[in-house]
Design a protein around this nucleic acid. Structure first.
Lengths: 225, 225
DNA sequence: AGATTAACTTAAAACATTTTCAGAAGGGTT
DNA sequence: AACCCTTCTGAAAATGTTTTAAGTTAATCT
């Protein structure tokens, strides 16, 4: 999971980065609103944590521009206790949730989970490609011959493949999304998991294959029957 | 849509009023239970949002009197995390849904939409999954071989599993919902309670099992007989 | 074709999560 | 005070996942 953190208090920011990375997020930190918008438009984040008061551009402005640009990255807004009006405006402007400082780290984590959970699950509980389908609610991958519950990494990988079924997904992208930035794991892990996914897809009898695009990545394809 | 909001924390109340009006509700705010009852009996509201802890009369008392007076205005109860017993009592007393603080505004809005849309949801006093059933009124879990009274935590956990029977529920989600943010308890408590629930389900002879999805959470499944 | 690189497979090792237990702490009741 | 009950902790064992490592196959290039 990839997060953007925009918080201008250096100390707080550093503490949060450490906390979040410790909890398996890959975090990019910026210290003003302008950078926030640049980063958010420049890359695909799973969520953004924005302080409402920031130099150059405040959090509300950032969300507004973000939404205007058609991005629906979930946003958690941080507001100081005294800025209650702000928080209303923040929600109004397109943030998904707010959190008043000071907050418990646990709560921050919970909120982040909540807003990242909401996105794909509620709008689209499962994905289908040909005769293969994946249920996000219960981690079940199913095909003509039955169903299997996937382990975590496998699930994340097949989900990426299925939700981006017309795109080649690079090994690096898998590493970033599934393993996160500071992962020490070798690239091999991707291959291993692709391999076991293929085995499972075959067992399910689905007419679908994970095709390797040499030097580029992987893509889901229909097999002819 | 006309709402009554009864919440004694002034700051929160104001924020909510603004939020709700921004979302096209007309809101009357009161700050104690007595006013709540007066307003609710005096006019026709589409729904009421009641804090459970309030001066003069608590939320539960308000619903009880409301129902006694023959009003079936949908009620959404707000409970603090530490008042878990309360929330059960609240539902029991005639509320339609509850929401534990702190909550996401979006969730509040969603719940309000839900209770104004459909009436007969929470009037349903028990849940069933295969040959296992849970009575909310008296905490009794029953199966082919009889019934057991569940302890509080166990009750809440099995209720989550049964009302979301097609979903994997994460350990974190259990922690959040049942124990709350500020809980110091280790994650272990979830495992321990799952363990004892399993034992009880087995003793009841129900053809149901709590399946672990490693690294993800738990889900209720039918066992083949 | 042969060399070179990338991708794949497998099994075992390493690691993490889950299960279960025993016991302790705390509340409430008799 | 003695008891029962719920809840929580810590630890050891069981089980499953993830990673590593090493060998194999396939594609591409010259």
């Amino acid at each position: 999971m990839r997060l953007l953190l925009a918080e201008d208090e250096k100390m707080l920011s550093e503490a949060l980065v450490e906390m979040l990375t410790h909890n398996n997020y890959s975090v990019d930190a910026v210290y003003n609103g302008q950078d926030a918008i640049d980063y958010l438009l420049g890359a695909e984040y799973d969520a953004a944590v924005l302080d409402i008061m920031m130099p150059l551009k405040d959090g509300i402005q950032v969300v507004k521009e973000l939404r205007q640009a058609g991005k629906n990255t979930p946003v958690l807004m941080l507001t100081a206790k005294s800025q209650i009006e702000d928080r209303v405006e923040g929600l109004d402007s397109g943030a998904d949730d707010y959190l008043t400082k000071p907050f418990a780290i646990k709560e921050l984590l919970a909120r982040i989970r909540a807003i990242t959970r909401r996105q794909p699950e509620l709008t689209n509980p499962n994905v289908t490609f040909r005769d293969l389908s994946l249920s996000r609610a219960d981690f079940l991958l199913s095909g003509p011959n039955g169903e299997v519950r996937l382990a975590n990494k496998e699930y994340q990988m097949i989900e990426m493949l299925m939700t981006n079924s017309r795109q080649v997904i690079s090994t690096e992208r898998f590493m970033e999304k599934v393993w996160g930035y500071e992962s020490e794991a070798t690239i091999n892990v991707v291959w291993v998991n692709i391999s076991s996914l293929r085995k499972k897809i075959a067992e399910l009898g689905a007419h679908v294959q994970i095709k390797a695009a040499r030097g580029v990545g992987y893509i889901l394809e229909a097999t002819d029957d």
